[in-house]
Design a protein around this nucleic acid. Sequence first.
DNA 1: AACTCTGCCAACCGCACCGTT
DNA 2: CAACGGTGCGGTTGGCAGAGT
Length: 243
Amino acid sequence: MVANRALKSIKKHKKGLWSPDEDQKLRNYVLKHGHGCWSSVAINAGLQRNGKSCRLRWINYLRPGLKRGAFSVAEEETVLSLHRILGNKWSQIAQHLPGRTDNEIKNYWHSCLKKRRVVKMSETEAQTTKNNYKYGEIRGLESSTSFQHIERLAQQCSFPKVLFAEWLSFDHFKNEGNLDNHSSSPEDNLVDGLLVNEGTSCSESDRKQDEVSVDDMLRLEDLESCLIDYFPGEFCMSYDMYV
DNA sequence: AACTCTGCCAACCGCACCGTT
DNA sequence: CAACGGTGCGGTTGGCAGAGT
């Protein structure tokens, strides 16, 4: 095994960007012979690349029928709605977008996220935020107009309320009877952070069926901007952590 | 003009899965 | 049944180009 790895590492394959000449060689070969086994494609086409690299290049760039350029509004909506249902299953999402590759959609999603300021928090950042706003510190702010507005938005939205309960007020959540008040801690009622609107825990499959409407998305974006205003420089929202 | 910052995107890496030997 | 090779997938990285200072 170790010897095999050593032998493999001796075989130097070219890495990095593909030259037009390499593209031409690969395109010609695959169009003429089909790909079959990718490692033999690399050899037979006269490329100093490994099979994996050839496959990726073909799928993401050379394959006929690929669309180039910006995503249309319809494509963007498709990606957003499918991602809500499927999560980071880029290949499955790509199946619904003819001419787009999983890599392209993945890249688009990440840049789109950045544009929308929906930045996924690191574990520690998330924990810090939770710790800062949970239970104690936030309660003193609840009487303010801004806070009431945020809570109003949260109520209108059919996203799992734990999203807002965790960040805004567990008392509010408990008062609605959504949490078991006899539990030692509100967190005891959480199942991996997932609660449906009525406060009952749900399975992954149930959750996937709980479609999020466009209205909800708009309300959530509104809510997000309020929170960002309210906690300047400290608030960070992660849809896919909870939704 | 030179430098830094930022976003985008192509490509790599590691892992899991599957079929074959 | 284990070992191995091929493939597919998702996460991550690195380089480039354009914007900003």
